[in-house]
Simulated assay, not measured.
Amino acid sequence: MHTATAGRIRARGPALPRTRPRDPGPHRHRDPDAPRHRDPDAPRIRLRGLGTARPRLRPHRPAVPRPRDDRGSTTFEFLGMFPYILTMLAVLWQCAIVGYAYHLAGNAADEAARAGAVGESCAAAASEHVGGAWGIRTECSAGTLYTAEVRLDMPVFAPGLFDLDIPVYGKAAAVNERED
Rank of each mutant, 00 (worst) to 15 (best):
H37P: 11
H37Q: 13
P40L: 02
P43A: 08
P43Y: 04
R44M: 09
R44P: 06
R46Y: 04
L47C: 08
G49E: 08
G49A: 07
G49R: 13
G51E: 01
R56Q: 09
R56C: 09
P59M: 00
P59D: 14
H60K: 03
H60V: 12
R61D: 13
A63I: 13
A63V: 05
V64D: 15
P65Y: 03
R66A: 14
P67I: 00
R68G: 12
D69W: 07
D69G: 05
D69E: 15
D70M: 06
D70T: 10
D70F: 10
G72P: 09
G72L: 02
T74Q: 08
F76Q: 13
E77C: 03
F78D: 04
L79R: 04
L79N: 01
M81L: 11
M81W: 01
F82L: 14
P83G: 11
I85M: 12
L86W: 03
V91S: 15
W93I: 10
W93R: 11
W93L: 15
Q94D: 11
Q94F: 07
C95M: 14
C95W: 12
I97L: 15
I97E: 09
G99I: 02
G99Y: 14
Y100C: 11
A101S: 10
Y102Q: 12
H103F: 11
H103D: 14
L104I: 08
A105W: 07
G106Q: 08
A108H: 00
A109P: 02
D110M: 02
D110I: 01
D110V: 01
E111F: 01
A113W: 03
R114I: 02
R114S: 03
G116R: 00
G116T: 00
A117L: 05
A117W: 05
V118W: 00
E120C: 00
E120T: 00
S121N: 10
C122E: 02
A123Q: 06
A124E: 13
A124V: 06
A125I: 00
A125P: 05
A126I: 06
A126M: 05
S127C: 08
H129R: 15
H129T: 15
H129V: 14
G132R: 13
G132P: 13
A133H: 08
